[in-house]
Structures are given as structure tokens and as C-alpha cells.
Design a protein around this nucleic acid. Sequence first.
DNA 1: GCCTAACCGAGACGGTACGTCCGGTCTTTTT
DNA 2: AAAAAGACCGGACGTACCGTCTCGGTTAGGC
Lengths: 221, 221, 221, 221
Amino acid sequence: MIRVTLVSNHRPGYARLVSTPSDGDVPLRSGGRPRDPGRDSALLAAAGEILPEVGYDRLTVEAVAARAGAGRATVYRRWKDKSELVRDAIEALGWEVPIPDTGSLRADLIALGTAYVDTSSRRDAVLAAIASSMARDPQLRETVERVIATPRREAYALVVERARARGEIAEGADLGLIAHVIPAMIFHRIMILGEPTDGAFFERLIDSLSLPLLTGERSSE
Amino acid sequence: MIRVTLVSNHRPGYARLVSTPSDGDVPLRSGGRPRDPGRDSALLAAAGEILPEVGYDRLTVEAVAARAGAGRATVYRRWKDKSELVRDAIEALGWEVPIPDTGSLRADLIALGTAYVDTSSRRDAVLAAIASSMARDPQLRETVERVIATPRREAYALVVERARARGEIAEGADLGLIAHVIPAMIFHRIMILGEPTDGAFFERLIDSLSLPLLTGERSSE
Amino acid sequence: MIRVTLVSNHRPGYARLVSTPSDGDVPLRSGGRPRDPGRDSALLAAAGEILPEVGYDRLTVEAVAARAGAGRATVYRRWKDKSELVRDAIEALGWEVPIPDTGSLRADLIALGTAYVDTSSRRDAVLAAIASSMARDPQLRETVERVIATPRREAYALVVERARARGEIAEGADLGLIAHVIPAMIFHRIMILGEPTDGAFFERLIDSLSLPLLTGERSSE
Amino acid sequence: MIRVTLVSNHRPGYARLVSTPSDGDVPLRSGGRPRDPGRDSALLAAAGEILPEVGYDRLTVEAVAARAGAGRATVYRRWKDKSELVRDAIEALGWEVPIPDTGSLRADLIALGTAYVDTSSRRDAVLAAIASSMARDPQLRETVERVIATPRREAYALVVERARARGEIAEGADLGLIAHVIPAMIFHRIMILGEPTDGAFFERLIDSLSLPLLTGERSSE
DNA sequence: GCCTAACCGAGACGGTACGTCCGGTCTTTTT
DNA sequence: AAAAAGACCGGACGTACCGTCTCGGTTAGGC
């Protein structure tokens, strides 16, 4: 289980665990009514719902606050502006990757790919909604990299390393590049092709791309 | 050379060749001052400059008009709204693909990849700027598909077909899927990794991904 | 008839006749859609209605714009802020004083007093609404002085001068001070006592205060 | 010496002597920590300072509490809202009128007038700050009437009554109206003219207005 | 000498208004 | 007519204050 911590907010007073906000938020100073952690999660959940519905630019702070039953000031008390709210909302969606260990490279890769985008929770739409902001917002890119991409790459690297130990990996394979093929194909399919990322697609990715590249053999052979 | 034609505008009066707007625009009705075709190209050029600078949502119609020395009404006379303007501005950037024919699959692929994104003209930033809008705007997706993706896929298919005729392509390769690997890796590199797409990167793509998948052999072998 | 002119607005482009806004507003620069003078008067009228209804601080720019069927930006295009809008709204209410000349000092004074506050148009409530702001806002004080107080003092001075020419004024009367008695009593009655300023009140003011002070005689004698 | 008592607060628990808050406040119920009377006076003093500085609407409860070293809740525990706080703050400024008895109507009137507004303590600015609220807030008007106006009118009535006993008052003088002339002129001078109320001004009021009206004679005669 | 209830400072809470900016439309004069 | 200019309505932005509530901590009685 990977857990991520943001140490400080843009307004002083709190250390905040964003990905698991209810765990240990504590005021750094004494005095005053403590922030209601329920407001954090309600607002992040509201933003996480609205974002895939209408996209980044049509998401209004007013709408997020209203859906959470909160006032706008409660939002701006926690996040400097809309972009920061959205960053945390993405993070709060939860992108944990279960690391499979079935003893078979193919089964492990399919398990990983299936977990990559859980279409039932509109995470693909979220990704699409913020994609273009990433080019302009280094903090958003950092968030996506840290929360989404890195855990997946690490899980993938571990699965491949186990396969190598079993002798399944061909020598000379460019593992660093191959690690990007699956995410890139998924992202491309969502963003450019606009097609669904279902089980059949994952199997095709594995059998036609990953396994040939990793093992040096056609899967059909 | 591929040339694309839009037959009608949202406001009556003109047939317009969007990708080459100065060529043959003619008023469908007589009377009145004719539209200045120079305004079209100046506005599209301005939008094409501003888009990669600030991204889609911070691109304001006012700024585009100002940079073109035009009034806002001149923009709205030509395009229904901002999204339509941006669509045409992307199209007007020019995404023609020269189809190489060197006799070598590897050389052809490298030539194609190099042409994919011409970083000197910030086309990658343009792509990044509009990425998230594609999820929400089917017309934008259609434009990107038609202007950018399809020509590249067709060029790629031709190059591969020639290689097959030369006997370079392995049987059983999933050509439909492999055709997406290079664009997906480029798009992923720009959007998620935020890294430059230079010559070394293209060579690595070809040698570590495309050639092994197409020919069934490690290029280093 | 006294007419007052404001030469410039806080935003460039227009010379503006505030008290008679439809007369001669002219753009100082050419080009562009001219401001709709009907928006000026509708907004000023709306502010002039709302002000006595709810008072200065509960008057919202949104409410003024809504009653005028305008957008908030249209307000802020004309007035820097709420206080400036209210200043002009007061001015636009119209405070012209007809200068009576009946041949009788008493009749002239009663005519003047009756005109001082036209209760049917809630001008007293307007005065009350802005009273405290006058202490803090020198521009508001200047407006009230110029638009309301000065014309009345001049009318009063003329009436008294005519009476002096007829020999009705006692020597030694402190005319400069006496000129303030009626306005002061009216203002005091509105603000402190909160009682209506009706005809009987004006007659009592004239007969018990002004005439004895000016002529040196009890009116009842 | 006139002393005024408020019997109850908007929140139960205390009877409160507002004008002399430290005298005898007693909890009506038992139990719990008693309110600190020092908080009352500190808050009223803070409000009484800030009011003439910035006016009614720019006076914030936060600023009052901060200047008193208190929290906002401590304010709202005592006063229902800002208007009630300001009402009590005005009352607490102290507006007692010493009733002169010099044997001379003129000397008595001058003594009264001088006491009317003690310019050294910004009481005139306080009056100006709340003037417009009086039209909208009957309780504020009642407070001003009771705390400021009535005591002065009673003192004035007593002084005039003594003069009448000495035979100085002309028959037929409209004493009820004349009683308002001085307060009205002072209020008018502060609010409309924005000029200081100094000794010379009071003497002029007495000699040019009050004495002629009361005695039927020019003071200079 | 605790217990308890209400106080206290601090500050979060849901609202509402501010003044600014932009989108898409409309209306001028000039070309 | 199209052009540049810019006013128009609507609506979101981020800030500030209102009056309420809630926290940890304090401070009297009453038992």
C-alpha cells in the first residue's frame, strides 16, 4: 500500500494527509475551532464527481461547494485556487495499484492493466479532463506523476523483475522504454481515439505488444 | 500533399478553404464589402501562436483579435465560438506528412517519426493545450483525427506495406495495434512525461519498439 | 433652472452631464458602440429607488443592475464603485428649486420650504440614507452641498433680498446664520425626530422662527 | 446625574447596567464562570473608538474584538448583532448634561450648548457615523433620543422655565419648537456643513437665534 | 477540593456582496 | 457589407465580512 503525504497547506495551520485525509490531520497551532475533516473529504469528493462530468474549465468552485453543502469560503480556506483543489481531488480519488504475483508474467500484466483504469469510477474521464492543464501546471504534472504514474511503473517493474528471475525476459529488451508502452497506449486510446479501455483491449496490448517485446516471442507462437 | 476543405461557415455568405484560406474564398452573395482574407489568416496565425503559449482556457478571443489587429466581431463573424476558432487554428498550422520511400523500413520509420512533431513550431504544445478538450468536444476530436492522426496512419500503413512487399514484416504481427504505438508514445511523452521529442527518442522508439514488433527481431541482433 | 455638469468619468471616453444625462453625452474618442444613455438613466433611477428603500449599505450593485435590467459590468463601466453610483443617483433625483416671488416674504418662505423636501418622492429618506456617509466621503458632501444645499441657500437669499428691498427685514438680523435655520430644522426633524415634514410644520417654522428672526416681530402680533 | 438602565440582554443570563456596566451586573442563573465585566467595557470602549474613525459600515466586529483583545464570540455573547453593539457603545460614551443655574438665561444657554458636543472626544463624529442608520433602525433612534436628546431637552426646559419665572421669556414664544433650534443647528453644522462646533459658534447661536426667539429682543439691543 | 457549567480566545462554518474579467452578442462609425 | 471599436448581459473568479458554531482551556461557585 502506497500512501502519499502533503506536509503543508497554502494557508498555515495544518498538516494534511491528502490521500487519506481522515487519518491524522492535526492543527499545528492551538486555539480555534479545528477544521472539519469531513469538509475536506466532502469537497474533494464533490470535485472528483463534477470534474469528469463537465471538465476542468466548466467546473466552478460554487458548484463544488454546493454539492458538498459547503460555502465557497470553506473551499478557499483549504485551497488557494481552483487548480489546487482539483489537484487534491484527483489525488483523493485513490489510484492504488495492487501488485499481482500469480507466477505468470502474462497474468500479472493483465491484472496490472485492468487496474490501470477502473472505468467504473470514471477515472479515465478525470484524466482526460486535466490532461491539457498538465502542460501548463507543473504541480499538476507532479501530482499525476507521483500519484498515478509512478506507482504503476513501480508495480510493473516489480512484475517484470520477478519474470526475469523466472527467466522469462529476453536479453537486450529496452525495459525502460517498454514500461511506457502500456500506459501510453491506454492514454492514447482514451484521449485521442476516445474508445473504451476494456478487458479485450488489455489482452491485445499484452499479447501483441508487451509479451513480444519483453520475451522476444510472439504470444501466438 | 493533403488538402482539406470546409465547405461552409456557421454564418452564411462564404465558402472557405480553411487549410489554405487565401486561395479561393469567394462570396456566395453579391454586394457589400468583401471579407478580407488576410483577416482569416492573421487571426488563425494569432490563435496558433497564443494557444501553445497559454493553453486553451486562458486563450481569450480578445487576445487573439488584438494580436491580429482585429476586432472581436471579426472573429465571431468567421467562427461560431472559441472552440471553432481553435479548431481551425490547429488545422491551419499545417500537419502535412511527407511519405518517405528510402527502401529501408527503419529509415522510413525514422523519417516519419521525425515529421510527427516538429518541435521548432511548438506543435507539441498545441497538442497538449487542446488535449483535455478533445474528451468533451467531438468536433475537436474529429479535427485532430482527420488532420493529424489519419494522414500519419496512412503514411505509416504505406511504409509498412512497402516493407511487407520487400518481405521485411513478420507474419502474425498485429499491425492495427502496432500502428498506434509510435503516436501513443509521443503523445504520452509530451503530455505525461513532459519531455522533449527529439531524434534520439525517435530512434529508440523505432529500434526498441517498432522494428521488433514489425519484424519480430531485435534490432541489435 | 440650475444645471450641473460633471466633466469626466472615472473611465475615459466620455464627458457626462450627470444631472441631465441624456442631453449631451458625447464620446471623446471615435469608434466603438456608444454607451447607451438609457442605461445611465435606468441605473440611476434604480439606485434612486432602492436607496430610500433599504439604505446605503444594504443597497447592492447587483440589485441596482437587476432592477435596471442591466449587468453588473455596465454599472462598473460607468462608476468606479458603489459610492460613486450613489452620488450620481442622488444628483439625478433632481433637486431644482423654483424661486418664488409672491410679493410676500411669508408666502415666499412657505413656498421655498414646501419645495425643500418633496416627501412624495422620498427625498427625505434618501437624505437620511446617505447622511452618515457624508462625514466620511468628502465627494458626497460636495455633491449634497452643490446639488441640494447651495441652490436652496441661493433661492432663500434672493427671497430675503427682495424682502429687504421692500423694507421687511429688521436691521441687525444675522442673515447668514438665519439662512441655516430652516434647513437645519428640516434635517433634524427627518434624521433625529423621524417625523414627517408636512405643510403645518413648514408654517410653524416660518411663523415661529424665520419671520420673528428676520423681521424682528412675532408673526402672531 | 441621569443614569440609564437596560434590564436584559438578548441572551439570557444577565441583567446589565449598560451605562455603568461595572456596577451591579449579576448572573440571573447560577453555575458556570461569570462573565467578565471588564470585557463589556473593553468592547464598548473599542467600538466607541473605532466608530468615529471609520464609520458604521466599515466598523467590523472583528476589529472591535481585536482592539479589545477579545474573540468575536465574546461580542456576540453580549450583543445580538453589530447594531446592538454600536447602540450600547454610543450609550456608554456618556452624554450626561450638567444643568447650569447661573441666574442668567444667556449664561445658562451657553453652558448648555458648550456641553452639547464635547469636541475633544469625537462625539460629533460618532453622531455623524450613525446618523443614517437612525432612519432604518428605530431602536437606534430610541437610544439617541433617550440618551442624548431627551436629557438635553429637559435641561433646556428647566433653564427656560427658570428664566420664565424670572420674567425673561416673551409671551407667545413657541417654546416647543425653539427647543429644537440649537440641537438642529449643531447637527446640521456637523453633518451638512462639516464645520467645527466651537465656542464662538455657540455664542452666535445664542445671541442671534435663541435669545431673540425666547425674549423677543435682539441681543444687541 | 473536586465538579460543573459557563466563560474565554481562536478560528472554521455557510452565506452574501464586492469589484474584476471573459464569452458571445449587438451597435456604432468608417471604409 | 465588412472592418475596428467597444458597450451590452451574464456568470465565475478570489476576497472580505457577517453571524453562528465548535474547539481547548480557564475560572468561578456549589457540593
